[in-house]
Design a protein around this nucleic acid. Sequence first.
DNA 1: CTCCTGATTAGACGTAAGTCAAGATAGATG
DNA 2: CATCTATCTTGACTTACGTCTAATCAGGAG
Lengths: 119, 119
Amino acid sequence: MSRQELSLEPVGGCCVPIMDAALDSAAAVEGASVFKALADPIRLRLMSIIASTAGEVCVCDLTPQFDVSGPTISHHLKVLREAGLVDCERRGTWVYYWPLPERLTWMSTLLSVPADARH
Amino acid sequence: MSRQELSLEPVGGCCVPIMDAALDSAAAVEGASVFKALADPIRLRLMSIIASTAGEVCVCDLTPQFDVSGPTISHHLKVLREAGLVDCERRGTWVYYWPLPERLTWMSTLLSVPADARH
DNA sequence: CTCCTGATTAGACGTAAGTCAAGATAGATG
DNA sequence: CATCTATCTTGACTTACGTCTAATCAGGAG
């Protein structure tokens, strides 16, 4: 359950802000795949709920907060897992998810704007 | 040319990191649309080229760096424009693009991870 | 005005992505 | 073992997205 289904390479060696240096083609492919994982409203909100919860969250507490079916939530959680943004563990009947902050830090750095370039 | 084709509301009033507070449904929809704009390798690389260039970039210097047709580049630039990530201006025969750092800052803050939560 | 060049728009096409219902799996309990 | 609950997987369906060619638009030059 906690194995990573997709490539989880360092994503370009983390990381120079795009305002400092342009990405090459390969880095763009890898980077875009992480953005894609957060490019859906349900996934972005799932990520924010998981990330803002200290410790971990049970799927059974996640599903009722959305208007879509259980399988759909399960699908979105899998996408977040494959992107390296969360991990999970089954304990008894329930499955618990927690955030993996490394990728968030990577994206945040990539998008960071030098103070003197703001506005 | 520099009009904004889509809603460019403040995107949730910019901005609390997702590790501090979960997004509500409406904020997630709006936020996901910005991530979607960078969720394509060509757009992410276009954005990084535009952002890393001091001043502005001519479309004529952008297109040759990619293996897709001119109209495709034009389409991707439009998506970035509608997401509020870049703006442009025609001067004579050529069109120039520059970054709008506000949205980058917003995303970067949203994804930022408190130092004590890293790893 | 006419022609040429750079850029965008329109429309068509194929693939990818989100959703659901139905079935499968994991584990607890009797 | 059988049964029940929580979660995930499968397969089908529909819509969204990236790409192209062809056509259009904006400006400069002759």
